[in-house]
Amino acid sequence: MSAIEIAAVSKVYAGGVRAVSDVSLSIADGEFIVLVGPSGCGKSTLLRMIAGLETITSGTVAIGGRVVNEVDPAARNIAMVFQNYALYPHMSVYDNLAYGLRNRGVPKADIDARVAEAARMLEIAPFLDRKPRQLSGGQRQRVAMGRAIVRKPDAFLFDEPLSNLDAKLRVSMRGEIRQLQRRLGVTSVYVTHDQLEAMTLADRIVVLNGGRIEQVGRPLDVYHSPASTFVASFIGSPAMNLADAEVAGGAVAIGGQVVASGVGGIADGKLTVGLRAEDILPTPNGAGVPFAVRYIEELGATRLVHGSVEGRHLTMALSPDLPLADEIRITVAADRLHFFDGESGRRVGR
């Protein structure tokens, strides 16, 4: 168990493609970090550089205080869980778990004990003699986890480990991974494109976009104060509503209508205003602005209402108890608005 220090790391592929640009990140001992971002944002590349499967173009990666840029993957004492599990198909579950230990010359009795412990923890003890193809997806996933656990590594690296599972299994495995990581206290780096996985698993989320870090923070901090329009639209479901606005003298106006005034610390000019679906409230008696309902997504506990205000698309979350008409009137609390620079998309103001 140890901290991971990533300092100014970049990756440029032979063809000149820049996958990761100047990423710096300190991961504390025992912390669960989730790298999240859309396809091609460099999150897997970053993980593979920590693992040693990808060379580092510039910058340094240190695990437990030791710079590992030139260290072989096996000597970094990390364990990795792959998206397609990467179990050795011709070996039994036991041999899959034991293979790495045998290669390191761990004594036979010790291997037995470690495999038995991991199998008990993951409830795969009955399958130790089976081949991977005789197991279900969830069981294979457990075996892949087991292979990581028996190594007693300094860090777990997860590369989208749940994306091959069905939705229900994904939720339960997510909980198990979280509990297991808490119990073992092993530093973990987890790559996913699923913002929900990121929110539920992480101690800290790292949002990546185009090979750069957009924001690092605790899940709720990222949710409640996204650092850019990219983060705002990526984290949270449904995505945050964004609208172009102008600011003059502290008054923010969307299409000429002032939605907030007395806002400090923002220079006059173009602005992007963000608003979470749940922060839009219906108003009872003719107050607020008219909202034309276009279609509704029923989620059971809540309902997502898509529609428009003066031609601008807007999504709001409503309680299913409320009656719904073709047009309702809505309002927003000015203190729930997020402001982003109109040019750069970076957060401004509060």
Binding site: G52, P73, A74, M80, N84, A86, Y88, Y99, N103, R147
Partner: peptide, 21 residues
């Protein structure tokens, strides 16, 4: 799959060991 080779690398298997095992 490439991941098999990568898993073997992390498991400490060199090129010849990966080939054989």
């Amino acid at each position: 799959p490439d991941e098999l080779m990568e898993a073997a690398r992390i498991d400490g298997a060199g090129p010849l060991k990966f080939f054989r095992d």
